[in-house]
């Protein structure tokens, strides 16, 4: 990697399950091409994928921005959606507000946010109920 920073933003459409996961897949390919370690790339990809699926399931739309520096990989996800009224509750493993339709598509295990936290070194979530959620996760390169 060079010292230059890399920034790229991906648009995410709510309820578009056909394309859900494309942004995270693209992020994974980008990080692999940068030569980052496969274990680190996998952690970022899993965290990004969970965040992308949350956006597709719950929000009207969202933007996921990849920011890479020599020290960190940061994913910033901002959505326009219902927000999260109780973030500590949402962070509990198994807690889910998913609909039966979401579960039929393979999601809604109540592991999304806990899985993001597990794979990120740093995670901050801020939410404005009725407006949307901002999720920023960072994985340290070294």
């Amino acid at each position: 990697m060079t010292d230059a920073e890399f920034v790229h933003a991906y648009e995410i459409a709510g309820s578009d399950f056909t394309n859900a996961g494309r942004a995270s897949t693209s992020i994974k390919e980008t990080l692999k091409e940068m030569g980052l370690a496969s274990a680190l790339v996998r952690r970022v990809a899993i965290a990004a994928y969970e965040a992308e699926m949350n956006t597709v399931m719950y929000a009207r739309r969202g933007t996921m921005t990849l920011h890479v520096t020599p020290a960190d990989v940061t994913i910033d996800v901002r959505d326009e959606g219902p927000g999260i009224p109780d973030i500590p509750l949402a962070m509990q493993e198994g807690y889910s507000t998913a609909t039966p339709e979401m579960r039929e598509l393979g999601f809604g295990a109540g592991m999304g946010l806990p899985n993001i936290k597990r794979n990120a070194d740093d995670l901050t979530i801020t939410s404005d109920v009725g407006r949307g959620t901002i999720l920023v996760m960072t994985v340290h390169v070294s």
Binding site: F17, G21, Y49, F107
Partner: peptide, 13 residues
């Protein structure tokens, strides 16, 4: 789960 998400999940992981 015979959907595209099974394939995407496999690729991500």
């Amino acid at each position: 789960l015979a959907t595209v998400q099974a394939i995407r999940t496999a690729a991500i992981a």
